[in-house]
């Protein structure tokens, strides 16, 4: 990958086109990351000039779908950071279990691996029947995949190890059936999920939750946008509800952070 075929100015031109023609605002994403994604896609799709690339992104609706899917990072994992899921299982969900009804928002859910992991823990704590998981993403095509609950079989060995390390109680294979190269997860898990597009940059709060999970999404945003999204979450979390972030993300430096209390050593905060 030649990393300097598109310069910073061209990135800005392209992102302004995207905003004007398609209504998606990437101008407050971390510049180096978004530039790298753009150059990666330019190379993958064999464009020969910036002008051609720009024209295609601007005018070709079908191509824009691909642009959206490739420009955002959709790499995710089941039970990523097992100690995090252990803390959800032992410290957070049992508290929420005392409520008559549990509303959870997985923001930036991508292909759904975190939502399914969460559903498995809820099921083992016998809470899934009274829970509802709202799983949202900016990108409609990843949500289509998430709805199906089918993940590549080659990853399942790693997921199963993560699951056991996170305090999982069962044989992980009880949750899926292998179908050629895919593992299809039990439909009882996604019966309690609602999938919907939601853009953290431009869309508003749509409900009140006791737990919001947004892991490895904010690292792609600049500081100003991170704070806006924290404000959005703040207006969407009930008092005494929880906010869970990725392993390198933090509420630190956000002005309202002192209204939240960290849960043990994990990247989980409770609203006071």
């Amino acid at each position: 990958m030649i990393s300097d075929v598109i310069d910073n100015e061209q990135v800005e031109i392209l992102l302004n086109d995207v905003l004007e023609n398609h209504g998606y605002d990437f101008l407050e994403y971390s510049p180096a990351s978004i530039k790298r994604r753009i150059i990666r896609l330019y190379g993958l799709d064999n464009f020969v000039s910036f002008a051609e690339f720009r024209y295609t992104v601007k005018t070709d609706k079908q191509y824009f779908k691909r642009f959206l899917e490739e420009i955002t990072v959709n790499v995710t994992e089941m039970f990523r950071d097992p100690s995090f899921y252990k803390s959800l299982r032992n410290d957070v969900l049992p508290v929420l279990g005392t409520y008559p009804f549990i509303r959870i928002w997985v923001a930036g859910c991508s292909t759904g691996e975190e939502a399914y992991s969460l559903a498995i823990v809820l099921k083992e704590l016998n809470l899934l029947h009274k829970s509802l998981i709202y799983a949202t993403d900016i990108n409609p095509s990843v949500l289509e995949k998430a709805k199906k609950g089918m993940f590549p079989l080659t990853y399942l060995k790693q997921y199963s190890e993560n699951y056991l390390q996170s305090g999982g109680l069962k044989d992980f294979s009880a949750y899926y059936t292998a179908n050629y190269s895919l593992a299809k997860f039990d439909e009882s898990l996604n019966s309690k999920m609602i999938f919907s597009t939601h853009n953290l940059v431009s869309d508003h709060s749509f409900n009140e939750f006791q737990l919001i999970l947004c892991r490895n999404v904010l690292i792609y945003f600049d500081k100003g946008l991170q704070h806006k999204v924290f404000n959005l979450f703040d207006s969407s979390i009930e008092k005494l509800g929880y906010l869970a972030l990725g392993s390198k993300e933090s509420l630190e430096f956000w002005p309202k952070a002192r209204e939240y209390k960290r849960v043990k050593m994990e990247k989980i905060w409770r609203k006071l």
Partner: peptide, 21 residues
């Protein structure tokens, strides 16, 4: 650079972490 993240450097010399492919 933390395990399992890529690290990029911004023009203002701040660090961006990235969990892409």
């Amino acid at each position: 650079v933390p395990a399992d993240y890529h690290m990029l450097i911004e023009e203002d010399r701040s660090i961006s972490l990235d969990y892409s492919e």
